[in-house]
Amino acid sequence: MTTRANAPSVSVLARRWLGENATFYLFAAPFAALTIVMGLWPIALSIQTSFTESYTALSPQPTYVGFANYIEVFGDPVFTKSAWLTLRYTVLAVVLNLVIALFYAMFLSSVLLSRGAWIFKLCCFLPVVTPDVAGYIVWKWMYSGDFGAVNAALTALGLPEFGGVSQVSTVTLAILIAEMWYHVGFYVVIFLANFAMLDRTLDEAAHLDKAGFWRKFTRVTLPQLRPAITINSIYALIQFLKTFTVVVVITKGGPGTATNFVSYYAYRQFDQAQYGTATAMATILFSVIMVLAFALYWYNQRRDWR
């Protein structure tokens, strides 16, 4: 094996490898540092804290209590109620937002609005890019009984007053509307992008077959919209499961506990230095979101293969 002698030595190879790749490590270093320090570390800390006694969480040697925080959280009736409220709200919000977004996108991409549709798209996307705090504060005051625009408009139209965010019976609807106002434009625009890619020849074929609107919609349009439906449902699910800002700004969990969703409840616990239970709730919510997102993704992938 004389050729071996001519081959570069290991140290030369290592130096060359480093010379070629040091640049890439250098490029990735700030990104890696931020991801680790501001992302992975807090996640790890959160999980770690969920296994410790709350009042020792900030000390150098926290007391580990195993699953005690989790057991406490699951035994807490306020949390159980909060979890159900969150689930119910999420289902309502996802269905409402996606159905409305789908039909509005279909409407905006119809031939009837061949000119100027971009202005309508611009309008519905506007709330998505503006600060949510400001938007929700405006909604809070629009729902106000004394001089809010909502009841003034209803009264002007001769309709009964809307209880808004001050009554348990109407608060869910009130924040559903405010949140839809803020988020739905995003889903509309995703659907619109998908509509622009539809195969128009299928439409014509359906037309020649004298298929009715509903049949055409379910057999021709919907199957082609699967990419947008997948993306939107995953996004909406994650979005509404962690509903937070609207609660902080408008309802503070009330009236009573009517909008005390898990993320808000966890935050309140954290604010009261209940670090152990707060991070346990966070970990539970995170697990639920992960499982649901993956299940949804997997379900849509599987249907694609058929």
């Binding site: 320090v37 501001m38 992302g39 570390w41 807090p42 996640i43 800390l45 959160s46 804290t49 969480a57 900030l58 962690k242 937070f244 993320s263 966890a266 935050y267 954290f270 670090y275 707060a278 991070t279 966070a282 919510l285 995170f286």
Partner: peptide
């Protein structure tokens, strides 16, 4: 928002 809470600890 759940990431933000442990960021307080960080």
């Amino acid at each position: 928002m759940l990431l933000v809470m442990p960021v307080y600890l960080v």
